[in-house]
Amino acid sequence: MTIYQFSVRGITGEEISLDRYRGQVLLIVNTASGCGFTPQYEGLEALYRRYRDKGFVVLGFPCNQFGGQEPGAEAEIATFCKTQFDVDFPMFSKIDVNGEHAHPLFRYLKKEKAGILGSGIIKWNFTKFLIGRDGEPVARFAPTTKPEEITDDIEKALAA
Rank of each mutant, 00 (worst) to 15 (best):
A159E: 04
V57A: 13
A78R: 08
Q5R: 13
T2D: 15
V58C: 13
D153K: 14
R22C: 09
K111C: 11
P143H: 13
P39H: 10
V97F: 00
Y21R: 06
K123L: 03
I154D: 03
K146T: 09
I150L: 13
E112V: 12
F89N: 02
T2P: 08
E100T: 15
Q40W: 10
Y108H: 06
F126M: 03
S93I: 02
G99C: 03
S7L: 10
L109G: 02
G115K: 06
L158V: 01
P39T: 12
N64R: 07
L130K: 08
K146P: 04
V29A: 03
A139D: 08
E14M: 03
K82W: 09
I16H: 06
T151P: 12
I122S: 02
E74D: 05
A114C: 00
Y4F: 05
T144Y: 10
K113R: 14
R20K: 08
T38C: 03
T144H: 14
F37G: 00
F126L: 06
I16T: 12
F106E: 08
D96R: 07
K110V: 03
E148D: 05
T83P: 04
L26R: 09
T83G: 12
H101T: 11
K54F: 12
F85A: 07
Q24V: 00
S119M: 15
A75I: 00
V58T: 05
L105K: 05
T31C: 07
G55P: 13
L130W: 13
V58M: 07
D53T: 11
R52T: 07
G115M: 06
A159V: 11
C35L: 08
A139Q: 10
D53C: 12
Q65L: 03
F106Q: 12
C63D: 13
F56Q: 09
E15D: 11
G72C: 10
A78G: 01
T31A: 01
G34R: 15
A73N: 14
K146R: 14
I3S: 14
Q69W: 05
V8I: 08
K146Y: 10
K156Q: 13
W124N: 11
S119T: 15
Y108T: 02
I131L: 11
M91C: 05
G60Q: 14
F61L: 00
A73P: 01
S17E: 09
W124D: 05
F37C: 02
E149L: 11
T12F: 06
Q5T: 09
A139T: 01
G67I: 06
K94G: 07
E70I: 07
I150M: 11
F106M: 07
E74I: 00
E45I: 14
T2G: 08
I131G: 01
S93C: 09
R22T: 13
L44H: 00
G72Y: 03
K146D: 11
Q40H: 13
S7G: 13
V8G: 00
D86A: 15
G118D: 02
D86R: 09
L130D: 08
G13I: 01
G55V: 06
V29E: 10
F126T: 04
F37R: 01
P104S: 05
G43P: 11
N98M: 06
L158I: 09
L47P: 02
D134Q: 15
E100P: 07
Q5N: 04
D53L: 14
S93Y: 01
G67R: 15
I116S: 10
F66D: 12
E148L: 08
H103I: 12
I122A: 01
Q24M: 09
R50T: 13
A73I: 03
C63P: 10
D153R: 10
L26I: 12
